[in-house]
Amino acid sequence: MSAVIDIEELRSQFLDQEFDSQEFVLKTENILTVARASGETRAEFSDESHPDFQAPPALLCSLASGRHLPIDFPAMGGIPMDGGKAVTRHAPVRPNQTLIGKTHLHDIYDKKGRSGRMILIVARMEVYDTDDNHLATADSRMVIREKPTS
């Protein structure tokens, strides 16, 4: 038997507290590969000689695929599933520039369905350059099926 998860308690304890910071560098070849595999034809994403060459949105989402939960976040029993991704672009992300990704939990909520309660957790990574310019926001939505209490 496991205890019922208290969403409000989790929210008060974990929301909006940065728990991870990482540096990234996107390589030109990876930008080109992601663009090609996505069918992308716009030159600013598929031609490295274009003056506005930059990373496509899907590649920015991949940055938020690392550690999603704080180290002291309680185990919920189920395996988190990838429920979706979102990205908001504030400025172009260029190849070979150092990026800093700072992650916090943006939202925790639940949904009740026929198969029981699902816990949804949104981990948000804010992506900056080394001058602290905010370039993008990438959300990763995790879904955890709550274990029955019987």
Binding site: S38, E40, P57, C61, G84, A86, V87, R89
Partner: peptide, 28 residues
Amino acid sequence: GIMGMGFLTTTIHQWSAVAQIEQIDTVF
């Protein structure tokens, strides 16, 4: 999953050569 997002952004970019995607949110 994010390759699916790539297909969606390509659709937008092919529709309009001047469209700038500010935000895209996908549910898997």
